[in-house]
Simulated assay, not measured.
Amino acid sequence: METVGMTPNYLIEVVRDTIKSVKYCFLITLNESEQANARLVEPLNLEEDMTLWFVTSAKSRKVREILNKSYVTVTFQDDSEQAYVTALGTASVENDFYEKQKRWQEDWTIYFPAGLQSDDYVLLKFVPSRIELMNFARHVASEPLPELRPTILSKVKGIWMIAERKK
């Protein structure tokens, strides 16, 4: 199960497949006391550069926490491949009309009765800088089992690279 010989491009493909295979993930923010708050969220889409988007209420706790501390964690679990992906990075609250229009879905009117014009409708943009992954179905993990560790990718000058493991 050693990741030697696996390229960052292959590992990013595994990350993409894991993200796309599950409907929900956990978004983890920090409150004012530095305690983690995790909540189940549904990502809207995954962009080529691994940016993720979420829709939420401007009045939500997660928006308050992101405005206070932009560093967040997003984690996905795919039981079918015994896999997980945890991404660390920064989130921002986006209220740009073009972005909101581009992502708007009519079935959201149940949450935002004023529709696209709702002041409560905002987007969260998550840009990862570090990704941790394991995927047993695709042999992305380390051996021997007593030293089982995830593979870590870091974004350096816009390019995903495999991070060196510390012994």
Rank of each mutant, 00 (worst) to 15 (best):
Y10T: 08
I12L: 11
I12A: 04
V15N: 01
T18N: 07
T18W: 07
F26C: 00
L27C: 01
I28H: 14
T29M: 13
L30K: 05
L30Y: 09
E34G: 00
Q35P: 07
L40G: 05
E42D: 05
P43Y: 13
L46D: 04
E48D: 06
D49G: 05
D49V: 11
T51W: 08
F54P: 01
F54Q: 00
A58V: 02
K59F: 13
R64N: 14
E65F: 13
E65G: 03
I66G: 02
S70V: 14
V72T: 10
T75H: 12
E81T: 01
A83Y: 11
T86P: 05
S92H: 02
E99G: 05
K100L: 12
W104I: 02
W104A: 00
E106R: 04
W108K: 01
Y111Q: 02
Y111F: 13
F112W: 15
P113Y: 11
A114Y: 12
L116Q: 10
L116E: 14
Q117H: 05
S118Y: 07
D119S: 05
D120Y: 12
Y121L: 07
L124Q: 01
V127W: 10
S129L: 15
S129Y: 14
S129Q: 15
R130G: 03
I131Q: 09
L133A: 05
M134G: 02
M134A: 06
N135E: 01
F136L: 06
S142R: 13
P144W: 02
P144R: 03
R149Y: 15
R149L: 14
T151R: 14
I152L: 05
L153H: 02
L153V: 00
L153M: 03
L153P: 01
S154E: 07
V156Q: 03
G158K: 10
I159H: 11
I159S: 04
I159P: 02
I162T: 02
R165I: 01
K167Y: 08
K167E: 04
K167C: 06
